[in-house]
Each structure stands twice: as C-alpha cells, then as structure tokens.
Amino acid sequence: MQQIGKNQLSILIIVFLIGSTPLFELGIKAKHDAWLAMILAAAAGLLLTVMYVHLQRRAPEAELAELYKMHFGRWIGGGIGLLYAVWFAYESMRNVRDVGELTMMALLTLTPKWIVMLLIISAAAYTVSKGLEVFVRVVQLLFPIVAASYFFIILLLFIARLPDPQHLLPILENGLAPVVKAAFPDLLSFPFGQMVIFLVFWKHVSEKKIIGRASYWSMIGVSAFLVFMNMLVMCVLGPELSAITALPLLEVVQLIRLANFLERLDVVVTLLLFIGLYVKMTALYMASVFTLNSVTGIAYRYCVMPIGAVIYASSFLEPNNTYHIWIGLDITLKIVPLFQVVLPFLMLVVGVRKRYKTN
C-alpha cells in the first residue's frame, strides 16, 4: 500500500485547500464583511474536520467507502460510496472546465478550449496513474513555488501602498445576518468542507496518530491565509469592484506599478491559477478512482482512464461559462453539504455505540 508522511500530508492539505481560492473574492455577498464570513465558515470547517478525524480514528486502515460500508452495511454503504465517487469526479470536472474557461479569458484567448482541457486532464490522468506517493511528491515540488509567489505578490502590494484598510469599514454595518448568509452554505462548502476528501487519503498516512494534529494545524494555517488574502483584495479593490470582477486577484496584481519597471505580473497569477486547479482537480480525480476501486473491487489501474474520459466528456455539458458559474454557485454549493455534512454526521451518529476493527 502506498504511504505518505506527516509533512507530506500537511503540504497536501495546504495546497489542496488553497487551490485557486485566493484568486476569487469569496463571501462577497457580505460586501466589506466578506472576511468575517470567511472566518465564520473556517471555524465551522474546523469543526467538520474534527468530525472527519473522529470517524477516521474508528478504523484507521479504512478509506471513505469502507467506512460507509462498515456503518451502513455492504449495499447501502457501497451505494453511498458510489455516490461519492461520482461527486468527486463531478468536482474534478468543474476544475477542468475552470482551467479551460480561465485560460481563454486571461491567457490564450485564441486557443480552442477543448485542447486546453485535454492537456490538463491528460496531465492529471498520468499523475493519478502513478499513484498517491508520486502525486504528493509533485505537490511538494509545487509548494515552494506557490508560497514564494504569494509572498512576492503580497510584498509588492504593500511596497506599492495599494491596500487601504478603510475599505473594510464599517464592520457589521448591516448586522450579522449577511455574514452568516454568505458563510453558509457557500463558503463552508467551498473550500473548507472539501476536507472530506481526506477521509480517502488518511488511510495512506504512515503515522496514524499524528493525522489529527497535522490536519488541524494545516486547516488553521490555510484558514488564516485565506482570510488574510480576502481582506487584502478587499483593501485594494473595495467591495463594489470586487463584486463585479471575475478574477479579483488578477485585477489587484495588474494595479502594481513600481518605478515604471515592475508591472504586468499577470503571469504570476496565471501560474498560481494553473497550479491550484491542477492540484485540486488531480486530488478529486484520484479520490474518485480510490473510491470506485474500494466499492467495486475493480483494479485501480483499470479505473483511471474510464473516469478520466467521463470527467473530460462531461466538462462539455455546460454550454457556456455563465451557465457553468451559475451551476457551480447556485446549484452545486447547495447540494454538496449532503456529502460534506449530512452523510458524515449520520455515520457519526450511527457509530456511537459501535466498535470497529482496525484491520
């Protein structure tokens, strides 16, 4: 069985949860209180992570689908596992489509979308075919690039004196209700609730005892970073411009002008965009393969290409980007709490009086 270490787990959680999240101004429904909505959703996400870790500790050698079969029986649990495999593939498909749309919007405007998406899904399929250990090593190599790029952007923004804290005021002007409405279910579902995917990967961590500690601290660190980036974008653009901009961080970076020399840093944001979407897409793709393998018993290597083909083909079902965004924000985020909150909570309740073997 493939194994990953404590530090590898932490890096995977950090890069996966960050993904492309800082590129967008999430929680903008709360206007200048969007960062408060992020804090609220992050706190709820940490509670969800505590629940996931508790479930994993019941059977440290079990993956997500195996946990459901242990709690609900072979047929019901297996059916739920298949639903998760489909959901993971669907979420991966959304990231494939995002790559295609955003590449055409911000970088290669004349390149056919199907070519861009074919290239990114091919890269993901190759990575998935090599297994979890290889994927995590790739993420380890990408992590310093991501960290250095964000540090570089933040440093230049402050050197250029672009952030204006006045854009964050007044705090809670319209009360707490808009903040809560922005946080739940949307911000909880994306990105914090996506921690549920690690119920698939925790089985493969070599040091089972440190899973909880590593996951909690990684979650807290990512949450603090995402809240900070949310506040930073808001301080530069303000609530009105943030709300109407497709890629707020790209807009922010385009404002950097230093000594008539350092400008047009779009390439840095584009790099972060591709890395974030690639890691998230590949992790979800791999989780779908692991889950299908666990439920059906079909060999891992035989699941990779069919799932990849389904992901690629289904990425064309949405006719345009407007429809794609509407499905993602108004439909998907309202359904995914079933997989992130409801079903894991039912499993938690069902298993209260049960004990499970660890092998």
Results as ranks from 00 to 15, higher is better:
residue 1 M to F: 13
residue 4 I to G: 00
residue 8 Q to M: 06
residue 10 S to D: 09
residue 11 I to Q: 04
residue 13 I to A: 07
residue 16 F to A: 05
residue 17 L to V: 12
residue 17 L to S: 03
residue 17 L to I: 14
residue 21 T to L: 06
residue 21 T to C: 04
residue 25 E to A: 12
residue 26 L to C: 02
residue 29 K to N: 15
residue 35 W to R: 06
residue 36 L to S: 07
residue 40 L to P: 12
residue 45 G to F: 00
residue 46 L to Y: 07
residue 47 L to F: 14
residue 48 L to P: 01
residue 49 T to R: 05
residue 50 V to S: 02
residue 55 L to Q: 00
residue 58 R to Q: 11
residue 62 A to W: 00
residue 65 A to N: 00
residue 68 Y to H: 09
residue 73 G to K: 04
residue 77 G to Q: 09
residue 79 G to D: 03
residue 80 I to H: 02
residue 80 I to Q: 03
residue 82 L to S: 11
residue 88 F to Y: 15
residue 88 F to T: 11
residue 92 S to N: 10
residue 92 S to G: 14
residue 93 M to H: 14
residue 95 N to F: 15
residue 98 D to Q: 15
residue 99 V to I: 15
residue 100 G to D: 12
residue 103 T to V: 12
residue 104 M to E: 11
residue 105 M to K: 01
residue 109 T to S: 03
residue 113 K to T: 14
residue 114 W to F: 10
residue 115 I to P: 06
residue 115 I to R: 06
residue 118 L to H: 05
residue 120 I to M: 15
residue 121 I to M: 12
residue 126 Y to P: 04
residue 128 V to N: 02
residue 131 G to E: 03
residue 132 L to I: 07
residue 140 Q to E: 15
residue 143 F to Y: 12
residue 143 F to E: 01
residue 144 P to Y: 04
residue 145 I to H: 10
residue 147 A to W: 08
residue 148 A to P: 04
residue 150 Y to G: 06
residue 156 L to V: 05
residue 157 L to A: 04
residue 161 R to V: 10
residue 164 D to S: 13
residue 172 L to Y: 00
residue 179 V to L: 08
residue 179 V to T: 10
residue 180 V to Y: 11
residue 180 V to T: 13
residue 182 A to G: 14
residue 182 A to Q: 13
residue 184 F to Y: 15
residue 184 F to P: 07
residue 186 D to L: 14
residue 189 S to V: 12
residue 190 F to K: 00
residue 191 P to H: 03
residue 192 F to I: 05
residue 197 I to T: 14
residue 201 F to N: 01
residue 204 H to N: 02
residue 204 H to Y: 08
residue 205 V to K: 01
residue 209 K to F: 06
residue 212 G to I: 09
residue 216 Y to N: 01
residue 216 Y to W: 07
residue 223 S to H: 05
residue 225 F to R: 09
residue 228 F to H: 12
residue 231 M to N: 08
residue 231 M to R: 08
residue 232 L to S: 10
residue 234 M to W: 04
residue 240 E to I: 04
residue 240 E to G: 01
residue 241 L to N: 14
residue 242 S to I: 03
residue 242 S to K: 07
residue 243 A to G: 14
residue 244 I to C: 10
residue 244 I to E: 15
residue 246 A to T: 01
residue 246 A to L: 02
residue 246 A to H: 00
residue 247 L to P: 00
residue 248 P to N: 12
residue 250 L to F: 03
residue 251 E to T: 11
residue 254 Q to E: 08
residue 255 L to Q: 08
residue 260 N to T: 03
residue 267 V to K: 02
residue 272 L to M: 06
residue 273 L to E: 11
residue 274 F to S: 05
residue 274 F to L: 15
residue 275 I to N: 15
residue 276 G to V: 13
residue 280 K to P: 13
residue 281 M to W: 10
residue 284 L to E: 13
residue 285 Y to V: 13
residue 287 A to S: 13
residue 288 S to Y: 07
residue 288 S to I: 11
residue 289 V to P: 01
residue 296 T to E: 06
residue 296 T to C: 07
residue 305 M to C: 01
residue 305 M to P: 00
residue 311 I to G: 04
residue 313 A to K: 03
residue 316 F to G: 02
residue 321 N to E: 10
residue 322 T to H: 06
residue 323 Y to S: 14
residue 330 D to W: 08
residue 332 T to L: 05
residue 335 I to R: 04
residue 340 Q to D: 01
residue 342 V to L: 11
residue 342 V to I: 08
residue 345 F to I: 09
residue 346 L to C: 10
residue 351 G to H: 04
residue 355 R to Y: 02
residue 356 Y to K: 11
